[in-house]
């Protein structure tokens, strides 16, 4: 499974998602879109949103800190 998270350095919800990944031992790649215009465009194209965090789990796109959707996409039991 490939997990990517698009973030900005000062975004509280990005931090929450990363904490969630750590608690559940999920390996992830973080992409800071504040300093990377190309990644920013990629994120907006993928999600249709100008808002962070955007999470890409094997191509499934989740916007924001949504625990239920994250659990489902990662197959984590309730």
């Amino acid at each position: 499974m490939t997990v990517k998270i698009y973030t900005t350095p000062t975004c509280p919800w990005c931090k929450k998602v990363k904490e969630f990944f750590k608690e559940n031992n999920i390996e992830y790649e973080e992409i800071d879109v504040a300093s990377n215009q190309e990644a920013q465009k990629e994120m907006i194209d993928k999600s249709g949103q100008m808002s962070v965090p955007v999470i890409d789990i094997d191509g499934e796109i989740i916007v924001g800190y949504d625990v239920e959707k994250l659990k489902k996409a990662l197959n984590i039991g309730a």
Partner: peptide, 12 residues
């Protein structure tokens, strides 16, 4: 947006 600190960098 409702959070300038979060999403501000997307409007560089």
């Amino acid at each position: 947006a409702y959070c300038a600190t979060c999403d501000g960098p997307l409007f560089a």
